[in-house]
Design a binder for these strands. Structure first.
Lengths: 208, 208
DNA sequence: ATAGTAAGTGAGTAATCACTCATTTTTAGC
DNA sequence: GCTAAAAATGAGTGATTACTCACTTACTAT
């Protein structure tokens, strides 16, 4: 788990170790429970080294989580949803599979960062705003429009698109939480489980 | 929002104010971010008063969240699931509605406590263990058995009962998160939303 | 080799923290 | 009203914290 570049500039090896250590300790103890002393020890550097690049402890956190939201989550979602939105899917199932595919690999790849973001959002309003701004503006509207297209085609039930999104992402999050956050050591049934989750959503939303 | 009794004994008015203040600040800032000084100020008492009853800050948190898990969540789940399990439901839909009913009112009533529990579980392994112990031992097995019963009757798909539970609670959690945690000020579509969520689950799990 | 800059160090600082405890205040029972 | 116990107080304590800054080391360009 390495972040080669957090922020705009290339990090020195020691600064990189600071970031890696911070990620680990923020994830394990939360921002408030993490001390710069402990982060420095873990990185094998002097505590003052942290403050050569980051003015405050919070700036260190933001340098990690901010890009997580704006550069990892958003591009994952936005860029690929451009494809999803513009692509021509024969049906809702293809659309749903497009949402699921890649997402899970990237979640797995960034799970610790996502864990930190989720843990910290309740305590840092600016993170919550950023997430909702990115997701709300770019993604939510686009998804809802696409949902409405499928509804017009009569493929899925005509309920409020926002609720459709909520239902889809609840199941997705349940799958992610179960496999990557709560029980990361359990990798059994993974393929079946994903397929069953997709079928559950498809059937649950199908128009009869 | 008042907790008249946390732990075994009746609290003095001041101690009660401490608990109320702690709940508020733990929810807003997390355990590590909350200081006993701030809690005391908010409660309008001297800081030492906190330590008359609670040996440590952590004991204060546990006195709040521990019973939350063992006395609120578990009884909600266990006691009522005894009824659910022993009751004779004509079909899976009745069973599902029994799960949903009452749960939501009690979630609404205890939402801030649930928020604290969710926020703190990643940082306090004993809370996670307690939750899984209670839920795992008493509830999970019982629910899975009941699920299997419905599967034998051919009412729902024959997938692993654990996955069924995951799917149900993902959707339930999505509903709860949307209405009580993320957007508590938004009470629109509430009745429809719940019904659609239930229908989504029913259809998603139905055996065809 | 020299000078300037960048990176790093770690002792120290002021503030904050969880908690203690001698003292004061309040309560309850007679 | 008196006494003992319970509740509360708040100054103080040692530890911890985020951060500073004078100094050292390393690197780069001339």
């Amino acid at each position: 788990m390495e972040n080669k570049e957090v922020g705009q500039e290339q990090l020195t090896e020691k600064q990189q170790r600071i970031v890696d250590a911070a990620i680990e300790i923020f994830a394990a103890k939360g921002y408030s429970g993490a001390s710069t002393s402990e982060i420095a020890k873990k990185a094998g550097v002097a505590e003052g080294t942290i403050f050569r690049r980051y003015k405050t402890k919070k700036e260190l956190l933001m340098s990690i989580v901010g890009p997580m939201i704006s550069k990892v989550i958003a591009p994952i979602i936005v860029k690929d949803f451009d494809k999803v939105i513009t692509a021509d899917y024969k049906d809702f199932e293809s659309f749903l599979r497009a949402i699921f595919s890649n997402r899970l690999k990237l979640v797995e790849k960034n799970q610790i960062l996502i864990k930190i973001a989720i843990q910290e959002i309740p305590f840092h309003p600016e993170l919550k705003e950023k997430l909702f701004e990115v997701v709300g503006k770019e993604v939510f509207k686009s998804i809802c429009q696409r949902i409405e297209d499928f509804q017009l085609k009569g493929e899925i039930v005509k309920i409020h698109p926002k609720l459709v999104v909520q239902l889809i992402f609840s199941s997705l999050f349940g799958y992610v939480a179960s496999n990557f956050i709560l029980f990361p050591e359990r990798s059994v049934h993974q393929d079946n489980e994903l397929e069953h989750t997709i079928q559950f959503i498809l059937k649950g939303l199908r128009q009869y």
